Computed example of a mutant assay.
Amino acid sequence: MQDTLHQHSPTISIGGRPICNLRFADDIDLIAGSQAELQVLTDRLVASSKAFGMEVSSEKSKVMVSSERVNDASITMDDEPLELVHKFKYLGATLHEDGSSTVEVCTQIALATAAFVKLGKIWKSSISFKAKHKLFRSFVSSILTYGCETWKLRADTERRIQAFENKCLRKLLRISYKDHEPLLATVKLQKLAWFGHVTRHDSLSKTILQGTVEGKLRRGRQKKAWCDNIKEWTGMAMYELVRSASDRDAWRQKTDSSALRSPRRPHRSRD
């Protein structure tokens, strides 16, 4: 990647920090502000990989456009056009072109439902409700909440999570609401905890989470941002959140009370 990015000037910056790629092991996500820039980065990556005896799979490589003005891009790899998609999986999470988390939430609910059905014999067995609930949290809830720290929750996605849990508990587990921690509260708790963790470390995640992208805001109502959930659940402004999250113990107490707070009446959500 050092050879690929040599003397390259990214056109996208967040919080004043240029960003043109995300990497984890052999998974590389190239980011560009234009089709021409993305094509240059792709060509450089292929050339650099070949120089070290490696190949980039064109079959597994996809192109996704996230823009309100542009909805198409033609990128090639070794003269072979790459598939343009509206969503794709990266590190186990489904990313959508509009930045929403609805598809990812629905995917995890489907996987959790499948796991729940497979354990049908256990739910119908004579073991204690307490043991069933522990198994439910270990083998079902853990699947649904995978990667939930990055979700952007809207009123409709919150209802989906609550409906899934209610169906499971009502039809099979028959556990009183007083005997368990709501699944939605678990999602909120993990997301709040991740905000605190990122805030206390100087990393790329912190830059992306708290930084701003250059350019003008679109006209009309703005889309709901990831941090809007944190502000709504805690009732705090961003500067207060940053200051509060710097104290680990104080933030943990704040997240517990915010996650378990009764949800407000659903209102018309932003996209």
Results as ranks from 00 to 15, higher is better:
137 R>E: 14
137 R>P: 12
137 R>G: 08
138 S>E: 13
138 S>V: 03
138 S>Y: 07
138 S>K: 08
139 F>C: 12
139 F>W: 04
140 V>S: 05
140 V>F: 01
141 S>T: 06
141 S>R: 03
141 S>A: 12
141 S>C: 10
141 S>I: 00
141 S>V: 10
141 S>L: 05
141 S>N: 08
142 S>G: 12
142 S>N: 10
142 S>P: 11
142 S>D: 12
143 I>N: 08
143 I>L: 07
144 L>R: 01
145 T>S: 05
145 T>R: 05
145 T>Y: 01
145 T>P: 03
145 T>H: 05
146 Y>Q: 09
146 Y>A: 11
147 G>S: 03
148 C>D: 09
148 C>K: 04
148 C>Q: 05
149 E>I: 00
149 E>M: 01
150 T>N: 10
150 T>I: 00
151 W>K: 02
151 W>G: 06
151 W>T: 02
151 W>M: 00
152 K>H: 01
152 K>L: 08
152 K>C: 05
153 L>E: 03
154 R>E: 12
155 A>G: 03
155 A>C: 05
155 A>V: 01
155 A>I: 00
156 D>M: 01
156 D>N: 06
157 T>G: 04
157 T>I: 00
158 E>G: 00
159 R>H: 07
159 R>E: 14
160 R>G: 03
160 R>K: 13
161 I>S: 02
162 Q>I: 09
162 Q>G: 09
162 Q>P: 09
162 Q>M: 13
163 A>Q: 10
163 A>R: 09
163 A>T: 12
164 F>N: 08
164 F>E: 10
164 F>G: 02
165 E>W: 07
166 N>Y: 13
166 N>K: 14
166 N>W: 15
166 N>H: 14
167 K>V: 05
167 K>Q: 12
168 C>R: 03
168 C>W: 06
169 L>T: 12
171 K>E: 15
172 L>K: 11
173 L>H: 04
174 R>L: 08
174 R>M: 12
174 R>N: 13
174 R>E: 15
175 I>Q: 13
175 I>C: 11
176 S>D: 15
177 Y>Q: 10
178 K>A: 12
178 K>E: 15
178 K>R: 14
179 D>R: 09
179 D>C: 11
179 D>L: 05
180 H>R: 14
180 H>I: 00
180 H>M: 08
182 P>H: 09
182 P>S: 08
182 P>I: 05
184 L>I: 07
184 L>D: 11
184 L>G: 12
184 L>N: 10
185 A>H: 07
185 A>M: 05
186 T>Q: 14
186 T>H: 09
186 T>N: 14
187 V>W: 10
187 V>C: 14
187 V>R: 08
187 V>G: 08
188 K>N: 14
188 K>M: 07
188 K>P: 11
189 L>C: 06
189 L>T: 06
190 Q>K: 15
191 K>H: 13
192 L>H: 07
193 A>Q: 15
193 A>I: 01
194 W>L: 03
195 F>P: 09
195 F>G: 02
196 G>I: 02
196 G>W: 08
197 H>V: 05
197 H>W: 07
198 V>I: 14
199 T>H: 03
199 T>I: 02
199 T>G: 04
200 R>D: 12
200 R>N: 10
200 R>M: 11
200 R>P: 15
201 H>Y: 01
201 H>W: 04
202 D>Y: 02
202 D>Q: 13
202 D>R: 09
202 D>N: 13
